Simulated assay, not measured.
Amino acid sequence: MPSKPPVRYDPSVETVASDEQETLAGLKDSFREILETTSQDYGHAVRAVHAKAHGIARGMLTISADLPHEFAQGIFATPGEHEAILRISTNAGDILDDSISLPRGLALKILDVAGARLPGSDGATTQDFIMVNGPAFAAADAKAFSKNLKLLSKTTDKFEGVKKAMSATFRVVEAALEAVGGQSSTLQTLGGAKPVHPLGETYYSQTPLRYGDYIAKIALFPVSPSLTRLTGDMVDITARPDALREVVREELIEHGGAWELRVQLNTDLEAMPIEDASVVWDEAESPFVTVATLTVEPQISWEQGVTDRTDDALVYSIWNGVSAHQPLGGVNRARKDTYALSANFRGKFNGCPVHQPASLAELA
């Protein structure tokens, strides 16, 4: 439990920058440039971020009973089971060879949830959480996020050979930094991330969200032995463009897996800021507490010609969900319209409107 009482949510915890709309316009331009570039090159529209999926799996999320009041909030206030679907990905907006080693993402869609909806997600009954295998966002605020994305948009779907060479170099530099207790989110974002097995990783929301009466970050921790034995395991990515998709498929067919969804409550707005997404919240002051378990039975996580159609039909956004889990902070506000832009572009270009499923049975 937290060492101090959690901070209660109030709209005043957010501070909107005076030039936020200008920053948002720049982000939209970068998203649009990435989308137009990749769709013309591939003849098919993919996501502007996290374009390449390494696996899609169906599971069941079980919300714990008898949670303490501070943790029994929003969709987690009522114990029970919910169908869920997860998507494992890499953060780039183009489809890259896995030898270009980048941070991994995991998007979780929880089905059949009740509650007042966030603007733009009316009519749906799903809750999305988007997470990455690192505790903090690579940019402090929306302006820094826009600057980073603008840089990446200029190299989208270009110079793959150079990217491979740079990635190998950055991995060496990042490993040297970590050997002396350091780390560089910039190097990791540019290709210096370790080629770790995606199923052994812990995935974090990185940015804060409303948690009913409180404020929190969430994370998904692997807990079944089949997953924890993969933590830190390096994947051989040499001459294997889809190595991560292959190893995820092998493991989920053989073992499936189980994760715990955990919540970290905000206990100090200065030490755990809302508007600086690059700050790691101290787990010694407020540890992650388990509120639900995600179970995935053994299954095929990727089947060419089948799973890719499912991937096309699905859309994830941190702004798809209930008001009790409203995303907070400038980075999250910037992701609202940009993620919608990406989804709408994909649906129009591919002639396959994306939608929110009411049940797993609706998915291909």
Rank of each mutant, 00 (worst) to 15 (best):
T126S: 12
E362H: 01
C352Q: 12
L96H: 09
W281Y: 11
A364W: 04
V354D: 01
K154H: 14
G80C: 11
K163E: 15
A65L: 07
V280G: 05
P273R: 10
S39F: 06
G351K: 04
R335W: 02
A216W: 00
F288E: 03
L61C: 07
A53E: 09
L328G: 01
I318T: 07
L27D: 10
A324V: 07
L220C: 01
E33Q: 15
I300M: 03
L152Y: 11
S278G: 13
A124I: 14
M131C: 03
M1I: 09
D233G: 00
E174T: 09
P222S: 03
F71G: 04
N148I: 12
A243I: 02
I34L: 08
L151Q: 13
R8I: 07
V248D: 01
L360D: 03
D233A: 06
D97C: 10
A57M: 14
I130Y: 00
V291N: 06
T202S: 06
A292G: 08
I130C: 09
V49Q: 08
A77I: 13
C352V: 05
T231M: 00
A216L: 03
D308A: 05
L67I: 11
N133D: 13
E14I: 06
A216C: 06
G212P: 10
Q183H: 15
S317I: 02
A292K: 07
A51S: 12
P353Y: 03
V49F: 08
W281K: 07
F71Y: 15
E283L: 08
S30W: 10
A193L: 02
D233C: 02
E285M: 13
D29L: 12
P357T: 06
P353D: 14
R8E: 14
P135S: 08
A277K: 06
P357L: 04
D98E: 07
N91G: 05
Q21G: 09
D236Y: 01
A313K: 07
T231R: 14
F288A: 10
L328M: 02
T310S: 04
V172Q: 10
L360T: 06
D337K: 12
M60L: 14
K150H: 13
G182M: 08
D213C: 05
V291L: 07
S12Y: 03
A138P: 00
H50Q: 09
K52S: 05
L118Q: 13
D242H: 08
P208Y: 03
A364L: 04
K28A: 15
H255R: 01
T231F: 00
T156I: 14
H197R: 00
H54K: 01
V296N: 00
W281N: 09
A17D: 14
E283G: 11
Y214P: 05
S226C: 04
R346S: 00
Y42P: 02
L27K: 07
T156Q: 11
A138D: 01
D311K: 01
D122Y: 09
S146T: 15
Y42N: 12
E160L: 10
H44W: 15
A77Q: 13
H82K: 10
T126G: 06
E251R: 02
E250A: 14
L220M: 02
E260K: 08
G134D: 05
E160G: 10
A165V: 13
A277R: 05
K336G: 04
K147N: 15
L118T: 11
A72D: 11
A17W: 07
E36K: 12
Y339H: 10
L102C: 00
G26P: 10
K150A: 14
K154F: 08
